[in-house]
Simulated assay, not measured.
Amino acid sequence: MQKIQFFIITKSIGLYLNLLSYINVDNAKSKAYRLFTSPRKGKLNAEALPKILQSATRETIEYGNEKIQAYIWKGTSRGASDVGPAKQTGFREANDEVILLVHGWESNASRWKKLLHHLIPLGKTIIALDGPAHGLSGGTEFSTPKYAEFINVIAQRFEPKILIGHSAGGAAISFYLNKYKNPAIEKVILLGAPSDFKIVSNNFVKLLSLNDRVRLKLEDYFIQRFQIGLDDFSGHKFAQNFSQKALIAHDLQDNVVLVDEGRKYANTWKNAVYIETTGLGHSMHDAELYKKIAEFL
């Protein structure tokens, strides 16, 4: 029943935008872009945070007119068996190696709960952020370049050596590495990450059944806003120039981001280990996979 309702709603929105395009195509494009970049879920209530985020030290970073929410689990020299409250001391004191966790679309930093129990014992300092318009971070627009800006702000503040991204978070990491050229990054882990932005764009157009008037206007706007051609807006093409060690994992049953996207990264990233899983879907939550990630680190 929910699938039927979703189908009716999306096609109705698409029909409205298609009709509007014959009256004011720029207005139709603007409304389509707003839909494309506006998450429907993923926000958090500061008064009712998930327990895993309550166990972290929180830091809010002002960025322009927006705020970026970071959660810190300070490292120790010998690690710990449990996730516990972080102390209010300098995050660099205990362990100089920092891991940055970057969640995906319509999610937030709490998605890392299961992985954190495998990372905490490593003794490294762990930072997780809420992406644009997600969690407790500000903003109303979510896009890969915008997310990369957030990563850059966090990276300047916390100086991570390791980046771990899921789904759109992985795509944002590849865009970040391509644009900001941070030589301090030593290792990267991508989980179920999309590569080609054009595929994401085409899927959105198909979902709403948008006509060519709206589609072409929207594609032109992407190029204008992101300053990159759609065919070049591709993580695996960026990865051709990456020198970091990488672990790339993708599931055969991922019906959100197809496994071909992971294979593209694996084929172009020169110093990458590729893991193909079965039965994990898009979430990629799995104790065995997380053990392999801990070993990689």
Score class of each variant (00 low, 15 high):
residue 60 T to C: 07
residue 35 L to Q: 12
residue 38 S to I: 07
residue 137 S to D: 10
residue 20 L to N: 08
residue 91 F to P: 03
residue 145 P to R: 06
residue 297 L to G: 02
residue 106 E to T: 02
residue 152 N to F: 06
residue 17 L to Q: 11
residue 196 D to P: 04
residue 143 S to N: 12
residue 225 R to M: 14
residue 283 S to N: 09
residue 243 S to K: 07
residue 47 E to H: 08
residue 35 L to K: 08
residue 56 A to H: 00
residue 22 Y to A: 04
residue 15 L to E: 09
residue 286 D to V: 00
residue 46 A to H: 09
residue 245 K to Y: 10
residue 172 A to F: 04
residue 228 I to T: 09
residue 243 S to I: 05
residue 89 T to M: 14
residue 181 K to M: 04
residue 291 K to Y: 10
residue 29 K to S: 12
residue 73 W to G: 00
residue 19 L to R: 06
residue 207 L to G: 05
residue 5 Q to H: 13
residue 253 Q to C: 05
residue 278 T to P: 02
residue 30 S to G: 08
residue 259 V to F: 13
residue 237 K to I: 11
residue 80 A to K: 01
residue 87 K to M: 13
residue 224 Q to T: 07
residue 66 E to P: 00
residue 266 A to Y: 08
residue 268 T to Y: 03
residue 212 D to E: 15
residue 185 I to Y: 09
residue 161 K to D: 13
residue 191 L to D: 03
residue 163 L to E: 14
residue 154 I to L: 09
residue 143 S to V: 10
residue 119 L to N: 01
residue 40 R to C: 10
residue 136 L to S: 08
residue 196 D to C: 05
residue 84 G to R: 02
residue 254 D to E: 11
residue 141 E to A: 05
residue 205 V to F: 14
residue 53 L to F: 02
residue 18 N to T: 11
residue 46 A to I: 13
residue 74 K to E: 10
residue 190 L to Y: 00
residue 68 I to C: 02
residue 141 E to H: 06
residue 112 W to R: 01
residue 51 K to H: 12
residue 251 D to E: 05
residue 217 K to D: 15
residue 37 T to P: 07
residue 71 Y to G: 00
residue 77 S to K: 07
residue 270 K to P: 05
residue 178 N to K: 09
residue 212 D to A: 12
residue 293 I to R: 04
residue 66 E to C: 00
residue 179 K to V: 11
residue 72 I to Q: 02
residue 140 T to K: 10
residue 149 E to G: 01
residue 35 L to E: 12
residue 73 W to Y: 01
residue 271 N to M: 05
residue 203 N to E: 13
residue 137 S to W: 06
residue 11 K to Q: 15
residue 234 S to M: 08
residue 3 K to I: 15
residue 115 L to S: 01
residue 139 G to L: 03
